[in-house]
Amino acid sequence: MKNMDWSSLLIRMSKGDEEAFRTVYEETRDHAYRLIYYLSSSKEDVGDIMSEVYIELLRSADKYRPEQPFFAWFNGLIVRQVRNWKRRNWRLYRIVEKVKLLADHSFDRKAEAKLSAVGDQIELLPILRKLPLKAREVIVLRYYQDCSLEEISTLLDIPLGTVKSRHHHALKQLRRQFEEIHGGKEKKDYVY
């Protein structure tokens, strides 16, 4: 890498200078790509994580301190974004598993296998977007931000009982929407 004045570039970036961002991007993209490629568990995610890294770089540019080596700081930023990506994927998996658990437990193994197979492929974001905002807030804070129900109560400035109620109803709505995706076929497999 060229001997860059990273501090001034990042200061300019934090003030909205697009040319400074372009320069930083051009000088760091190959490095960032390689590091993300080696750290991520899914090579298909590298492009998305790369975008997250540069979004976070824009947000964090004013936090860089000139006394620290730029690439050490930038590597830390990359590692955190890869971890965040993995954590988000894990939360998505947990939500799917929670929806499965809340599904009627009285169905047979054939229906369970179908539910499991579909659950592995489900795209939850469109389903989450169908939830009312108050329910979506609780689900996102609980499973994407890993907040406890007590923390959600504090964040939203609502009673803990209200959080628990919204959480319960949101999971029921997710389960209902999950079942609707699969139509009547799977419902025939349920044993009532």
Rank of each mutant, 00 (worst) to 15 (best):
1 M>S: 15
1 M>A: 15
1 M>K: 12
2 K>S: 07
3 N>P: 01
4 M>H: 09
4 M>E: 02
5 D>S: 08
7 S>G: 09
11 I>A: 01
11 I>W: 00
14 S>Y: 01
16 G>A: 06
20 A>P: 07
20 A>Q: 11
20 A>H: 11
21 F>E: 04
23 T>Q: 10
24 V>L: 04
26 E>G: 13
26 E>S: 11
27 E>P: 04
29 R>L: 10
29 R>S: 13
29 R>E: 14
35 L>S: 02
37 Y>N: 03
37 Y>W: 14
38 Y>A: 05
42 S>F: 10
42 S>Q: 13
42 S>I: 03
44 E>Y: 08
44 E>Q: 12
45 D>K: 08
46 V>I: 14
46 V>H: 05
50 M>G: 08
50 M>V: 05
51 S>F: 04
51 S>P: 05
52 E>I: 05
53 V>M: 02
53 V>K: 04
53 V>F: 02
57 L>K: 05
57 L>T: 06
57 L>G: 01
59 R>M: 00
61 A>T: 00
62 D>W: 06
62 D>Q: 08
62 D>L: 04
64 Y>P: 00
67 E>A: 07
67 E>C: 04
67 E>I: 04
68 Q>H: 05
71 F>G: 00
73 W>A: 03
79 V>K: 03
80 R>Q: 01
80 R>P: 00
81 Q>Y: 00
82 V>T: 09
83 R>Y: 12
83 R>G: 06
84 N>T: 07
84 N>C: 02
89 N>C: 11
91 R>C: 10
91 R>K: 08
91 R>E: 14
95 I>L: 13
95 I>S: 03
96 V>F: 03
96 V>D: 02
101 L>C: 13
102 L>N: 07
103 A>R: 02
104 D>Y: 02
104 D>C: 07
104 D>Q: 08
105 H>Y: 12
105 H>C: 13
106 S>M: 07
106 S>R: 15
107 F>N: 11
108 D>T: 09
109 R>S: 11
111 A>F: 03
111 A>Y: 04
112 E>V: 14
112 E>D: 13
115 L>C: 08
115 L>E: 03
117 A>M: 10
120 D>K: 12
121 Q>W: 05
126 P>R: 07
126 P>D: 07
128 L>C: 03
129 R>M: 12
131 L>Y: 00
134 K>R: 06
135 A>E: 11
143 Y>I: 01
143 Y>A: 09
144 Y>I: 11
144 Y>C: 09
144 Y>F: 12
145 Q>G: 01
147 C>V: 05
147 C>K: 15
149 L>R: 14
150 E>P: 00
151 E>N: 09
152 I>V: 12
153 S>A: 10
153 S>M: 03
154 T>K: 09
155 L>F: 15
158 I>E: 03
160 L>K: 15
160 L>C: 08
160 L>N: 08
161 G>K: 08
162 T>R: 13
163 V>A: 01
163 V>H: 09
163 V>Y: 06
163 V>T: 05
163 V>R: 05
168 H>T: 08
171 L>M: 12
173 Q>M: 11
174 L>E: 04
175 R>N: 11
176 R>K: 14
177 Q>G: 11
178 F>R: 04
178 F>Y: 15
178 F>E: 03
180 E>Q: 15
183 G>L: 13
183 G>E: 13
184 G>M: 09
184 G>Q: 10
185 K>P: 01
186 E>D: 13
186 E>Y: 14
187 K>G: 05
188 K>T: 06
189 D>R: 15
191 V>C: 10
192 Y>F: 15
